[in-house]
């Protein structure tokens, strides 16, 4: 009798923690999900200002400006559409023109994309899967790297 009631209490505690975990996960997930767009998807779907998203593509050749006061502006392209990115942080070391890049941030009313993070990949043989797919869809890239 005693053992059973104790087991019941443990199960009840487990239930409470499980419910809390699931609830918390679902609520937190809603705010923390970041969707990935390619530049042409942005052109088609117009994500709203201030919405946190990721954009991936190639850094357009010759588009990188490095203002003297710091930061960098550049254009991300997938061959079909382009997006101007404003970034006031420090570019990652592997950032290069013509290479794949993923930027996270939000659009600002001027129509530019203000990035809070810029990710370039560690390994230059490595293309971020989303970028590879987006580029393949727009026909810019015919790499063999299957997913």
């Amino acid at each position: 009798m005693r053992a059973r009631s104790q087991r019941l209490i443990m199960v009840a505690i487990a239930g409470v923690i499980l419910v809390a975990a699931v609830g918390l996960a679902l609520i937190a997930l809603r705010d923390a999900i970041v969707l990935f767009y390619s530049p042409s998807e942005v052109a088609a779907e117009h994500p709203g200002f201030g919405e946190r998203i990721r954009i991936g593509g190639l850094v357009e050749d010759g588009s990188v400006e490095r203002p003297a006061e710091g930061g960098a502006n550049f254009v991300v392209t997938d061959g079909a559409a382009t997006i101007r990115v404003i970034y006031d942080g420090s570019l990652p070391d592997l950032f290069r023109e013509g290479q794949g890049v993923v930027v996270e941030g939000a659009f600002i009313p001027s129509g530019d994309f203000e990035a809070s993070t810029v990710l370039a990949k560690h390994d230059e043989t490595y293309m971020p899967p989303e970028v590879a797919e987006a580029l393949r869809e727009s026909g810019v890239w015919q790499g063999e790297g299957e997913r």
Binding site: L24, I27, A28, L29, D31, A32, V34, G56, E130, E133
Partner: peptide, 29 residues
Amino acid sequence: GTLYPLVMTAFGVSGVSVGAAYFNATATP
């Protein structure tokens, strides 16, 4: 949170990523 993007890919929604905010909010309490 780690596998969510993978699960979504299986449902045909690619390119979802889960930010650090999720993990901070769920793990901390």
